[in-house]
Design a protein around this nucleic acid. Structure first.
Lengths: 202, 202
DNA sequence: TATCCATACTTAACAGTGTTAGGATAATTG
DNA sequence: CAATTATCCTAACACTGTTAAGTATGGATA
């Protein structure tokens, strides 16, 4: 391996280290208490060093989001692979999304509250990204349900929106209403999923 | 009127002026660009003066939220008064909530993203507040639907949660997905409301 | 080997944030 | 008139993201 490649690899590795530290800091300290300076302290470098590996804070957050969406689309594919009935698959996917958000509020906030990281859906669909892959898999699963004749023949896009938006609501409710998780989130999740599928199925 | 009363009235009036300026600043400059210092500049006082009328930033935001909930619960009562069919009333209420959020993103953010201003539902129900009144009216409207035999006999609480959570999802989707409003929010709102009521009605 | 130079990283600073301590001024009270 | 109190301000603290400019260091080259 040449020196340049070695350097590139080192750079790549350091970037990963920073990313890992950032994610950890986010999860431990929370969305509001995350700062570039604290991250710098954690990795024991000056704050400015981070800017050699990430354009700015948003760029760093974007990288973490992409990491998550990579993991998430893998999960969707896995759920799809092990389950046969399309409606059951979709139900599991929605439950997975909600439960992830409920269990990882800080990471969820990071992903979905970081102002329009991915822009419009048109932009999302155009530009290669992990978030795009996730969206496509989600839509395919919905299409499976429609093709199996088990769901109203609305556009798959609109159904994806309805499901993700409702999930988003459940999670954000939990984030901004203290103790929602502890006391009523289980009930709320079940109620929401039941209403959604009762409303969507043929 | 005695001097003390006069003073109290003056204090109250100034508080209102600050509140009005703050709301205006929020709507014009946006949630992210609001700051105590900018508000101070707008009202042409030093930043510290604000702290004589509000304990801190959160206290000021809370006051604006309460103002909104006062207006909102009035609206709910009005809708309830002019409409006869309970399901139609409820549908209008949900649409009103969604549309308010879509049209007033900055104010909506302020109200629902200001971290747990009202605490848990138990706390909300206990402590006198405009938000509490709103919650009660909303629940009564849902109860009307159940009593009229037009809705599944789930607890009204849970149904209120389902509806507000879904509305919250629609609005936040709009806030964090650029151009959602312009292109697809109408469709999304209709789809969501249809699914919800199809899922909830008997 | 000595020079050069890019890479990696730092210090110091700018402009902004919420908030507080303590001081100044004006109005009201005794 | 003196004392008190209400009202407002200046200055500061401890943060924030970000940038400009500077310093070592270590490999490549003359």
């Amino acid at each position: 391996m040449g020196v340049k490649e070695k350097r590139a690899k080192y750079k790549e590795e350091f970037r990963r280290d920073i990313l890992d530290a950032a994610r950890e800091l986010f999860i431990n300290e929370g969305y509001e208490n995350f700062s570039m300076r604290k991250l710098a302290e954690k990795i024991e470098y000056s704050p400015t060093t981070i800017y050699l590996y990430f354009k700015n804070k948003d760029d760093l957050l974007f990288a973490i989001c992409e990491e998550f969406f990579g993991h998430f689309s893998d999960q969707l594919n896995h759920i799809r692979a092990v389950s046969r009935d399309p409606i059951e698959t979709l139900r599991k996917v929605v439950l997975y999304l909600m439960n992830f958000g409920l269990k990882n509020p800080n990471q969820y906030k990071l992903i979905f509250f970081t102002k329009s990281v991915y822009g419009t859906r048109e932009e999302l669909v155009e530009k290669e990204s992990m978030a795009r892959n996730t969206y496509f898999v989600f839509r395919e699963i919905v299409q499976d349900c429609i093709d199996a004749g088990k769901m109203k023949e609305t556009e798959a896009d609109v159904i994806v929106d309805t499901l993700t938006i409702a999930s988003h609501g459940v999670v954000t409710k939990n984030i901004y209403c203290a103790d929602f998780l502890k006391k009523r989130s289980g009930k709320a999740v079940r109620a929401m999923v039941d209403v959604l599928f009762r409303g969507l199925q043929k």
